[in-house]
Each structure stands twice: as C-alpha cells, then as structure tokens.
Amino acid sequence: MPEPAAFAAGQRVRVRAADPDGHTRAPRYVRGHTGRVVESQGRWPLADDRATGAAEPRVETVYTVAFPARELWGEGTHEVTVDLWESYLEQAAEERA
C-alpha cells in the first residue's frame, strides 16, 4: 500500500528553514516561506539521498507548491511554483479570514 500523502491540494505549507551541507532541491529563495499546495506529483526518490549514492534513497511525495511574489520578495503580483519533496515541508497555519 502506498503511504498516504501528508498534504492535500489547497493546504498551506511552509518550507523548512533547513540548510543542508550537501545536494538538495529546495531553492534558497523559498526556504522558510509559506505557500499553497497545488497538487501532488506522486512519489519519487529523494534527490538529496540519491546524490550521495545511497542504495535505498527515501521515496517521498513531491508537491507543486505555489508562492505569491509578495511572500517571497515583499512585492510583485506574479506567482512562483516550486516542486518540493515532502520532507522539505511542514504544515503551516491557515490564514485568518
């Protein structure tokens, strides 16, 4: 049985402020920032593990996460979507209405 995805489309997620020494695919400009899950892309081997030659890399759900420009740069009207493995993310509080 595949493991259920931790985050659902529409949910707010925060990119962990981690700063690993090695290869990672969480760009610096989204770390610590909050976005919204657009969709799940299925499960893929974690690039951080595969870059070390690990025989059995962790396999995780990858999410498309959309960030408003204002969240990333403090200004701008565009949106940036980034593809992020589940362990890069944590749940964020929902915005108050």
């Binding site: 090695g22 290869h23 690039a47 595969r50 870059a51 070390t52 030659g53």
Partner: peptide
C-alpha cells in the same frame, strides 16, 4: 557509473 543527482552534486 553515477546518477544524475550525483552529477548535479559534482557540478555544485
């Protein structure tokens, strides 16, 4: 010989 991720790591 290596994976694409190891290659990207070597570039970085």
């Amino acid at each position: 010989v290596y994976t694409l991720d190891e290659f990207r790591d070597a570039v970085e």
